[in-house]
Amino acid sequence: MMKHFLILSSIISLSLFSSDKVGRLPVYRIAVEATSSSKEAITIRDFIREKIQSTGRGLVTPTLKESELGVWEFDKEGNPSEKTIISLERLTSTDKLLLVSTEDGQAVISFVDVLHKKVEYRTSLPDSLSKTLVSDFLGFLDKKNIYLALSETGSGSPNAQLRINSLKSTYIAGEPIRFEIESAEDNYVYVVLIPENQKGEPVLLFPNQFQNDNFIRKGDRVTIPDKRISFKASSTPSKDRIRAFASREEWKEFQLRGKKEDSFYRLLPPAVTGTKASIKPMVASNTLTASIEQSPVMEWEYQILSR
């Protein structure tokens, strides 16, 4: 049975997080392991563990037991072998698996999504550039953490900061999606599309390249997107989420990616596989993640049906 949504008049009700999620930042549980016994691989592994733990970028899980180590084999597209799938299924208390190895004078880092059984990130550099290798990876992890914050956090508030009008709970593939947002106070407003199952990149719907002023004064109403932009339900059936954040401060730390012809911004770069990451670490990622977590958020889910 299709999930129904509570609608009060024409306003979608808020889906605020309970108090147990307020005041803490979600982080991935990361197992960091060396797949080779070389001194270089062990050194890099220990250094990454320390950096992740000391900077709060993740919760480093205890070293895997011999029975959990298993086999770690992935093809060029990042897909695991059958034996590796069995090994990943044993990691019930781990979100991500970071594998470090050294071979032929190269240091290699592979970052595996345990749930979806897929390599998200893989890059290599000469052993002499291991610090750059680690820095590139931490930059990627910073952006993954921001994605997690956008997807899973938000502080509850007894008084709703935002109101949404004219949003339906179901759309037909290709159908235009447009809604109106109103702020109960003067706020910077950020509206983000979260793809189903977090498999895709988050998309910033507002502000966008045509509506670049996202400061909404009390009582003002803004249509998102405006008539200059086309935002349509995806061509395949799915169940996506849209989250709207109200912030007293502008999130200046956002690193956005978009071409001139794009209407909306991508918040994260695509996963890097087999090449050196060219992404600079986000210096203020912890600040931005905290800002996201502390901002009141409203969330709604809509289902896309096939034609």
Rank of each mutant, 00 (worst) to 15 (best):
D46L: 12
E175I: 03
G58A: 08
I7Y: 14
D20M: 10
A290W: 07
I292G: 08
S235Y: 02
S263W: 12
S230K: 06
L6P: 06
G154V: 05
S101Y: 06
S54I: 13
L256H: 11
S278R: 13
S135I: 00
E182F: 07
Y28R: 14
G219T: 11
P225Y: 04
Q209N: 02
V189G: 05
D75V: 09
E66S: 10
Q255E: 14
S295G: 11
T273D: 00
F137P: 05
I172K: 13
Q198F: 05
D186F: 10
K21L: 06
T61S: 11
S278C: 00
G200R: 01
L115Q: 14
S157Q: 09
L59H: 14
S13F: 15
L267P: 02
F179L: 15
F137Q: 03
K252F: 08
L99C: 08
R228G: 03
G56T: 05
Q294R: 13
S285M: 13
F137D: 05
Y121D: 06
S183I: 11
F264N: 01
M282E: 14
T94E: 08
R228V: 05
L150P: 04
D20F: 08
S36G: 08
I42T: 13
P62Q: 08
S155H: 12
Y190C: 01
D226N: 15
D220P: 13
K21S: 01
T289Q: 08
V108G: 00
P126K: 04
H4E: 12
A184M: 05
G258F: 13
P202W: 12
A246V: 07
